[in-house]
Amino acid sequence: MNGMTQIVKKVTQLMSGLIFMYGLYIITHGHLTPGGGFAGGAIVAGGFILLILAFGSKVISLRKEETQTSITESAALLIVILLALAGLFLGVHVFFNNYLPQGQVGELISAGVIPIYNIFIGMEVAAALLTIFLALVIYKEEVAS
């Protein structure tokens, strides 16, 4: 898959860092401001899609990347399930129990396990959307060749 022109590449270089930082901000502040794992994960996936579209890549490295995103997605989902299962053994024995101390409402480190869920759900969403996109791109390259 070929990249785009020099102008697009330069603008992408300038913008992609900001996009990633915005996505990470949305994820980590999900319990304080609008956003959360779903929105931030989609933004991070959008940043990766922008990079792939602008710079292009070879099919082999795309395949490798697809394997990595697939593994990331599965691992993040597994960690979410394990975190939820941990609620069965800590504190009140309830699935999806909020067992960590909750702290002050409005601080960054607060709300117990919710920020951790946010981070891993964000990873899961970003990796899943990226896997879908990479599968489409690889299919296109294979048909073209």
């Binding site: 959360g36 969403v125 879908i132 599968a135």
Partner: peptide, 24 residues
């Protein structure tokens, strides 16, 4: 609705995958 929107994207991608498979 927040969860449903992301599911909507995934199902749309699945439908598109079936569509381009049929196109081929």
């Amino acid at each position: 609705v927040l969860t449903a929107i992301v599911i909507g994207l995934a199902t749309t991608a699945l439908l598109l995958a079936i569509a381009i498979r049929i196109y081929k």
